[in-house]
Design a protein around this nucleic acid. Structure first.
Length: 1013
RNA sequence: GCUCGGAUGGUGGAACUGGUAGACACGCAGGACUUAAAAUCCUGUGCCCUCAACAGGCGUGCGGGUUCGAUUCCCGCUCCGAGUACCA
C-alpha cells in the first residue's frame, strides 16, 4: 500500500495513549533525564505553526534519549491563569474557567495530533485548586521566612524571633526594609503582638509595601506597564494616573548575588544570561555621606526632622577614587530632602524645575537625554575628604529609584557630570595625570596617578580605591558598598483570574490562614470588574471572609506565580500531601533540558530561579539551579500579504485666488483622490509607480521612468477630467508623487507567487465585497512583509490544515528542516512537498513496485552498511548539539543512497527505522510492526561502528597556491613523502605546474594537498 | 547610545577543530510517461566570458590583515534583527 499517513498516525496515537507508552517511572534504575517545554497559556486562538517548533525539538530529544537508555520525564501542562480569559469574561460574562477549559481542549486535540510523547498523566493546570493550593503554600513559606545574611540563606521567621528575644535587633544581619527599628531584647518583650507583627513584616520574604501602580479611573482598574502607552490606556485610550497602594512584594533582592553567581554554573544562551545580569545590575562602589552645611540654611524646626537627625546626603558611587574631583552634588527632584535643602532665594526656581519635570512624561525623560537641565537648591555639603563646600543641585538625570537618589558630580571623569558642569559653569577638576582633554569631554580613565587629591596623590587606581574605602569607614562617613539595580517584585494584581493570596486582615495587619485550610478557593463573583469603590474584583464576593469576620486579601497573584515552581509538580503531579514527594524530587532533581522562547528571559526564568533557591534554603528541594540547560527556540514569524491602493496629491497655485465654488470643488476632488478607496492596484504596477529616479542615467532607468510616466498619466486621467470640469486645470498642480496605502489580505487567498485569488477574496471577505482589483494582466499581485503571527495581521498558519494534507510526521520534519532551532524564521510551506516526498521514498524502501511490503534477510553489503552507519553517527552528533535541521537533510541523503543501492536488507532497514523514529514516530512505528517487531519506544539506538566508514582511498583535492584545481585519488596509507611524490609525478598536475618548481608542498592526510609555486 | 545576535545562489539553508563553498530541499528549465492534466521519474541549474566544449575569471555584506590555504581567526566599517535605556 502507498503511504497512508492519516490512518497510520491515528492508529499509533491511539496505541500510545492506550498503552501509556510514555508514562515516566519515578523509581527506575535507569539514569533520569528531564526534558521540559515552557508550558503554554491556552489562548482562544489555538496553536499556530510557531508554537510546536520547540515542542517538536524537545520531543525528538526525549524520544532519542529514551532510545539511548534514559528514563525520560517529558510532561506538559497549562499556565491557565491569565488576562485574556478574564478580558473575555468581562466582555461576555462567561466564567474564565469555562473558556479556559474549552481552550485547553483545543490545545490538547492539536497537541495530540502532532504525536508528542508527553506523559499526560502528569498534566498540570495552574488554575486548578489542586495545583494552586501549593502555589499558595509556597507563598505562606515565603511569608514565614526571612533572609539571614550571616548564613546567606532564607530561614524560618522563628529564628529571627529568637534573635529578637535574646539579643534584640543589634545582632540581626538581614535583608529587610529600610525603616526597621533598633531595639533591645527587653524592648521586644514589651512590644504588643501588633507591634511585633509590624516589625516582622519588614523582614518577611513576602511583605506589604506601598508601591505606585498605573490606575485607570475610566476602566476602574490597574494596568500593567505594557498596557499603558504615553500615559493613556492602550485599550480605549483613557488617561492613566500613578496611584499609591499597599501591595504584596517579593524580597527577590535578597537573592541578587546568588542569582548573579548562579548564572556561571548553568548552560544557558549567553544573551539570556546577559539580560539577567543587566537586570540584576550589580555595581561595586562605595557609599559616602556628605554632611550638609547648615550655616546657609534656615532649618525649620518643625518640618525637617529627617535633616535634623541625619544631617547628611548619602551618595553611591562606583568611582570613590574620584572624590577629590567632586564639584557638585545632584539629587533626584523626588529626593526627600529637596524641600528642606532649598534656601529661601532658590525656592522659586526649584519649584519651577520640579513642576517642569513632573510635566515631562516618562517617555520624554528617557528620550531626551541630550538637553541638560537642573536647578540649584542654594545649600551646600561639605566634602568629607577635603572639607570643601560643594553646591547641591537637583536634576532629572538622577533617578530617585536607583542607589540613594543622589550622586556626586565629578565632571572630569563622567560625561553626564561634565555636560552638567559645562552647562551651569561649575568647576572641572582634573584628578588623574592620565586624564586627557578634559576641556573637551570627560575622561573616565583609571590610568595614571592621582593629582589634586591630597592624601591619595601619586597612588594608582586600585590602591586609592581601597585606601579611601578604609579611610571613609574609619572616619564614619562611608564604606565600600555593592549596589543592585534589581528591585523587589510586586506580587499583587487587582484581577480576578489568578491565585487568591492566602491572607486575611485583622486590625489592619496581614495574617496567614491555616495550612490545613488550603486551598483558599477563588470565590464566585457576579461580574469580573472592580467594585464601585475601586476595590479589586474579589471585593464583589459575598459571604467571603475568614472565620466570618476578617476580610481576605482582595488582590490575586501575578501570572508568574504558578509558573515559578511547576517543574516540581510534574515530578509528582497527583500528590495531595506535598507539592511533590521528597523521593520524587530526589530522583528527578532538576530539569536537564528546558526549551522555550527568549521573551521569558527576565521574567519567568528569573522568578523561577528565585523560588527554587528559596525552596532549597528551606530544604524542600536539592538543587541550587532549576534548569541546567536552556535553549531558546526562534520565533516563527508570518509572511503577511498586502493589497495596495493609491492616491494623488494636488497642490494649489498660491498666486491665484479661488472663488468659493472653486474652493469647494478643489476640496472635494482633493479628498476624493488623496486616497482612492475600494480600488486596489496589483503590486507590480504600484512598484513601478513608486520608484522614481531623480537622475535617471542608465537606459534601464530611463525606460522605467517612461513606463512610470505612462502609468501615472493613465491613472490620473479621470482626475484631470474632473479638474477640467471644475475649471481648475490651470489653477492646480497634480504632484508627481503617489500615496501608497496597503491593507492586510488573509494569506489563505495568496499563492506562493504572491498572486491573490481575487474572486474568492471578494466573495469571502466583507472588507472586499465592493472592491475593484486592477491589474495589467489577469494576475493580481500583493506585497509581502514578515511580521509576527497574529489574527489581526491575517497571517496565521494553523497546523491542522497541514496535518490534514501531509500528516504529522511531515509537519514535524518540516518544522525542523526550516533551519536552526534557535534562529527565527518566516513560515512558508514552499519546501513541505520535499519532506513529504522524502517520507514516501522512505516508505518505498520497505515496499516493492506493487507497493507490497517486502524486505530481504540477506547479508548487508559494505555500501549499505556505510550509508547506515553514516546516518547513525550523524543523527547522534546532531541531536546532542540540537542541530535538528541538519539531520533531516542527512536522512534524505541516506534514503537516496539506499534507494540507489536498491537496499531491501532487513537488518539495515530495521536500524534505519530506529534512527528516524524520534523525528517521524508514526511511520516508523508502522514499519517497525510490519517488520514484525514491537515496542519501538523502548528499543535501543543502534551502535555506531566506525569500521564501516573506513576508506582505503581518498580523492585528495589538489590545489595550487590555495586554489583547488583537481582531485586525485590516493591511498590513505601513503605518508607525506610518498604522497607528494605521486602527486608531482601525475601528468595532469605537471600540466598545471607548467614546468615551474614547487616552492613548498602542504600535505594534510585525508584532507588536502596544496602546491605552492 | 550600549549589549547580544545575524548577513552564503532565485528561496530555506549546509560546510562541526582554518583544508574541495553552495550538501539537502524548494523553485526554475528541459525531457520521459499520458489523448491531456495531475502524480511520478530522468537531466541541468552560483554568476560572468564563450555558439558550445575545453579552459578561464569572479564569487560567502564592505575594506584591510594573519596564513601555504579564511564563510571560519584578527582589525575597521555598512546594513538588518532582538534586548536595554540618563544605573552614578
Amino acid at each position: 500500500m502507498d503511504y497512508q499517513f492519516a490512518a497510520i498516525e491515528q492508529k499509533w496515537q491511539k496505541f500510545w495513549a492506550e498503552n501509556h507508552t510514555f508514562k515516566a517511572d519515578s523509581s527506575s534504575t535507569k539514569p533520569k533525564y528531564y526534558v521540559l517545554d515552557m508550558f503554554p497559556y491556552p489562548s482562544g486562538a489555538g496553536l499556530h505553526v510557531g508554537h510546536p517548533l520547540g515542542y517538536i525539538a524537545s520531543d525528538i530529544f526525549s524520544r532519542y534519549k529514551r532510545l539511548k537508555g534514559f528514563n525520560v520525564l517529558h510532561p506538559m501542562g497549562y499556565d491557565s491563569f491569565g488576562l485574556p480569559a478574564e478580558q473575555y469574561a468581562i466582555q461576555t460574562g462567561q466564567h474564565p474557567a469555562i473558556t479556559t477549559e474549552a481552550n485547553i481542549a483545543t490545545y490538547r486535540r492539536q497537541l495530540d495530533q502532532i504525536g508528542f510523547s508527553f506523559d499526560w498523566s502528569r498534566e498540570v493546570r495552574t488554575s486548578e485548586p489542586g495545583y494552586y493550593k501549593w502555589t499558595q503554600w509556597i507563598f505562606m513559606q515565603l511569608f514565614n521566612s526571612w533572609y539571614n545574611l550571616e548564613t546567606d540563606k532564607a530561614e524560618d521567621i522563628t529564628t529571627l524571633i529568637e534573635k529578637f528575644n535574646s539579643a534584640g535587633s543589634a545582632d540581626v544581619k538581614a535583608v529587610c526594609d529600610e525603616d526597621v527599628r533598633s531595639f533591645l531584647p527587653s524592648d521586644w518583650a514589651t512590644f504588643t503582638t501588633e507591634e511585633k507583627q509590624v516589625e516582622l513584616l519588614k523582614y518577611r520574604l513576602t511583605y506589604l509595601k506601598e508601591s505606585t501602580v498605573n490606575w485607570c479611573p475610566a476602566l476602574g482598574t490597574v494596568l500593567a506597564n505594557d498596557e499603558v502607552k504615553d500615559g493613556f490606556s492602550e485599550r480605549g485610550g483613557y488617561p492613566v494616573e500613578q496611584k499609591k497602594m499597599m501591595q504584596w512584594s517579593m524580597r527577590i533582592s535578597a537573592y541578587a548575588e546568588r542569582l548573579l553567581q548562579g548564572l556561571n554554573t548553568i548552560d544557558w544562551p549567553e544573551p539570556v544570561k546577559e539580560m539577567q545580569r543587566n537586570w540584576i545590575g550589580k555595581s561595586v562602589g562605595a557609599s559616602v555621606k556628605f554632611a550638609v552645611d547648615n550655616s546657609q540654611l534656615a532649618i525649620d524646626e518643625t518640618e525637617n526632622s529627617k535633616l535634623k537627625t541625619e544631617n547628611y546626603i548619602e551618595v553611591f558611587t562606583t568611582r570613590v577614587d574620584t572624590i577629590f574631583g567632586v564639584s557638585f552634588i545632584v539629587l533626584a527632584p523626588e529626593h526627600e530632602l529637596v524641600q528642606a535643602l532649598t534656601t529661601e532665594t532658590q525656592k522659586e526656581s526649584i519649584a519651577n524645575y520640579i513642576a517642569q519635570t513632573k510635566k515631562k512624561s516618562e517617555l520624554d525623560r528617557m528620550a531626551d537625554t541630550k538637553t541638560v537641565s537642573g536647578a540649584f537648591t542654594g545649600s551646600y555639603v561639605i566634602n568629607p575628604v577635603n572639607n570643601e563646600l560643594v553646591p547641591i543641585w537637583i536634576a532629572d538625570y538622577v533617578l530617585a529609584g536607583y542607589g540613594t537618589g543622589a550622586v556626586m558630580g565629578v565632571p572630569s571623569g563622567d560625561q553626564r557630570d561634565w555636560l552638567f558642569a559645562k552647562h551651569f559653569d561649575l568647576p572641572i577638576i582634573q584628578i588623574l595625570d592620565g586624564q586627557k582633554d578634559i576641556e573637551v569631554e570627560a575622561d573616565p580613565t583609571k590610568e595614571g596617578s592621582y593629582i589634586n587629591s591630597d592624601f591619595i596623590n601619586n597612588l594608582g587606581y586600585k590602591e586609592a580605591t581601597s585606601y579611601l574605602n578604609h579611610w571613609l569607614e574609619r572616619e564614619g562617613v562611608g564604606k565600600a558598598k555593592v549596589n543592585y539595580r534589581m528591585r523587589d517584585a510586586i506580587f499583587g494584581r487587582q484581577r480576578y483570574w489568578g491565585e487568591p493570596i492566602p491572607v486575611y486582615f485583622k486590625d489592619g495587619l496581614p495574617y496567614l490562614i491555616k495550612e490545613e485550610e488550603l486551598p483558599l478557593l477563588l470565590p464566585e463573583i457576579d461580574k469580573y470588574l472592580p467594585t464601585e469603590s475601586g476595590e479589586p474584583p474579589l471585593g464583589r464576593a459575598t459571604d467571603w471572609s475568614y472565620e466570618d469576620q476578617y476580610e481576605y486579601e482582595l488582590s490575586t497573584m501575578p501570572g508568574w506565580a504558578g509558573s515559578s515552581w511547576y517543574w516540581y509538580r510534574y515530578m509528582d503531579a497527583q500528590n495531595n500531601c506535598d507539592f511533590a514527594a521528597k523521593e520524587a524530587i530526589a530522583y528527578w532533581k532538576d530539569v536537564d533540558l528546558y526549551i522555550g522562547g527568549s521573551e521569558h528571559a527576565t521574567g519567568h526564568l528569573l522568578y523561577s530561579r528565585f523560588w527554587n533557591k528559596f525552596l532549597k534554603d528551606l530544604g524542600y528541594v536539592n538543587e541550587e539551579e532549576p534548569f541546567k540547560k536552556l535553549i531558546n527556540q526562534g520565533m516563527i514569524v508570518g509572511e503577511s500579504a498586502f493589497a495596495h491602493s493609491i492616491g494623488f496629491n494636488i497642490g494649489e497655485d498660491k498666486s491665484i485666488d479661488f472663488l468659493t465654488e472653486e474652493w469647494e470643488a478643489f476640496e472635494r476632488i482633493t479628498e476624493k483622490y488623496r486616497f482612492i478607496s475600494g480600488k486596489f492596484l496589483s503590486y507590480d504596477i504600484v512598484e513601478i509607480l513608486l520608484k522614481q529616479h531623480i537622475n535617471p542615467i542608465s537606459e534601464k532607468e530611463i525606460e522605467q521612468d517612461k513606463k512610470r510616466k505612462e502609468l501615472f498619466d493613465f491613472y490620473t486621467k479621470s482626475l484631470y477630467e474632473e479638474l477640467k470640469n471644475a475649471s481648475l486645470l490651470d489653477k492646480v498642480v497634480v504632484l508627481p508623487f503617489i500615496n501608497s496605502y496597503k491593507i492586510h489580505v488573509p494569506i489563505d487567498y495568496v499563492n506562493s507567487k504572491n498572486e491573490i485569488d481575487v474572486l474568492s477574496l471578494k466573495q469571502k471577505d466583507p472588507r472586499f465585497y465592493e472592491a475593484e482589483f486592477i491589474s495589467e494582466n489577469s494576475v493580481f499581485r500583493c506585497s509581502r512583509e514578515v511580521e509576527k503571527m497574529s489574527k489581526s495581521k491575517f497571517n496565521v498558519v494553523n497546523p491542522d490544515v497541514l496535518i490534514e494534507n501531509y500528516g504529522a510526521d511531515t509537519l514535524r520534519m518540516y518544522e525542523m528542516f526550516l533551519g536552526p532551532l534557535e534562529q527565527s524564521k518566516p513560515w512558508n510551506t514552499n519546501g513541505i512537498e520535499g519532506v513529504f516526498k522524502f517520507l514516501r521514498k522512505f516508505w518505498r524502501l520497505f515496499h516493492n513496485e506493487e507497493w507490497n511490503f517486502h524486505v530481504e534477510d540477506s547479508i548487508p553489503t559494505k555500501a549499505e552498511l556505510k550509508a547506515l552507519h553514516k546516518i547513525i553517527k550523524k543523527v547522534q552528533d546532531d541531536v546532542e548539539r540540537f542541530s535538528f535541521n541538519t539531520s533531516v537533510s542527512s536522512f534524505m541523503i541516506a534514503v537516496n543512497e539506499l534507494t540507489d543501492l536498491k537496499c531491501k536488507n532487513r537488518q539495515v532497514l530495521e536500524d534505519l527505522v530506529i534512527v528516524l523514529s524520534p523525528y517521524a514516530p508514526h511511520i516508523c512505528e508502522e514499519l517497525w510492526s510490519l517488520l514484525g517487531n514491537t515496542d519501538l519506544s523502548n528499543t535501543s539506538y543502534p551502535k555506531f561502528n566506525p569500521a564501516y566508514l573506513e576508506e582505503a582511498e581518498f580523492a585528495y583535492p589538489i590545489s595550487i597556491n590555495g586554489k583547488m584545481k583537481m582531485n586525485l585519488s590516493l591511498s590513505l596509507s601513503l605518508d607525506e613523502a610518498q604522497a607528494t611524490e605521486t602527486v608531482l609525478a601525475n601528468e595532469q598536475v605537471k600540466g598545471y605546474l607548467e614546468g615551474k618548481t614547487p616552492k613548498k608542498i602542504i600535505f594534510v592526510k585525508g584532507k588536502i594537498v596544496n602546491i605552492v609555486v
